[in-house]
């Protein structure tokens, strides 16, 4: 009986190794993580940072773009000079705005597809290619199989993939359904703008304050060497402010429904 169990465990390990050969090895090395922007947020993540080989999902509008760009800018230290593939249908990305988040726009390769199929194909090609720093895709719909393919491609080659999911305010129901849907991404964030604190000089308002976002970590999936477990907890929410000088985020206030509770450890989902 014990022998059988041992064999089963051995086989399970083998499958695990085959399925995520590169990732398991890569995940063990320390330097394949990037900071989410602030130490408090990194601490809340089970890895102590965002894994640089894997797929992450960010819901939101322009604020999500800003957050994504700030993450991509951090990749520069891991993969210096590596180009970044940015796949989307529109042509609205503005270089000067990206440069403000520390990302050199010259590193971007923009890919415009006619439809989501084209974009998913381009993303997979980018994740499979050597020497590409990161791949961003702005997609309204990600079929589960396509999401899984992207995640596997990212793990296999150690690529950093970001799925930007715009939220259409008109289609609130659909957005809710999308949010509830499972995905293969390692983390899922929802980023929205937050009212900023105006700069005051002598009690008088003297201009707009730094950018503020509400960052919501909705889900994260931890895959380690010998287990593949989904960790869930209460979605954590932070209100962060963008600091231009240091190019990172500072947590302004913890919100009531989120991390104001004593930092609750991630627990295994049943």
């Amino acid at each position: 009986m014990t022998a059988n169990l041992n064999i089963a465990a051995g086989l399970r390990n083998d499958i695990e190794r085959i399925e995520r050969g590169g990732a398991a090895v890569a995940a063990e090395t320390k330097d394949t993580f990037i900071s989410a922007g602030a130490a408090e947020i990194d601490k809340a993540l089970p890895w102590g940072g965002l894994p640089a080989c894997g797929l992450h999902e960010i819901f939101g509008d322009a604020a999500a773009t800003g957050f994504a760009v700030s993450l991509l800018a951090q990749l520069e230290t891991l993969k210096p000079g590596a180009p970044i593939l940015w796949c989307q249908t529109g042509r609205e990305l503005y270089g000067h705005g990206l440069a403000a988040f520390g990302l050199d726009p010259a590193r971007l390769i923009l890919v415009h597809g006619r439809n989501d199929t084209d974009l998913l194909w381009a993303m997979e090609e980018g994740l499979a290619a050597r020497g590409i720093g990161g791949v961003v895709g702005m997609l309204h719909k990600v079929p589960p199989i396509a999401g899984r393919r992207l995640q596997l491609a990212a793990e296999e080659r150690g690529g950093f993939g970001l799925l930007l999911r715009p939220l259409d305010p008109m289609a609130g129901v659909r957005a809710a359904a999308e949010l509830a849907a499972t995905s293969m991404a390692l983390t899922r964030w929802r980023v929205s703008g937050a009212p900023s604190e105006p700069v005051r000089i002598g009690g008088r308002e003297a201009g707009m304050g730094p950018l503020r976002w509400q960052l919501e970590l909705q889900r994260c999936r931890l895959s380690t060497h010998n287990s593949n477990t989904t960790y869930t907890g209460h979605p954590k929410t932070w209100q962060v402010e963008w600091r231009d000088e240091t190019g990172d985020l500072s947590v302004v206030a913890a919100l009531r429904n989120g991390s104001a509770q004593p930092a609750e450890p991630w627990r295994v989902a049943s």
Binding site: K79, P83, D118, A122, A129, R130, I132, G133
Partner: peptide, 20 residues
């Protein structure tokens, strides 16, 4: 693998541009 490879990037661009 870790370093940026311009030739590899060019090959990727070729594939993307020929399809899209």
């Amino acid at each position: 693998t870790a370093r940026a490879d311009p030739a590899e990037t060019a090959r990727l661009v070729d594939r993307l541009a020929n399809r899209l």
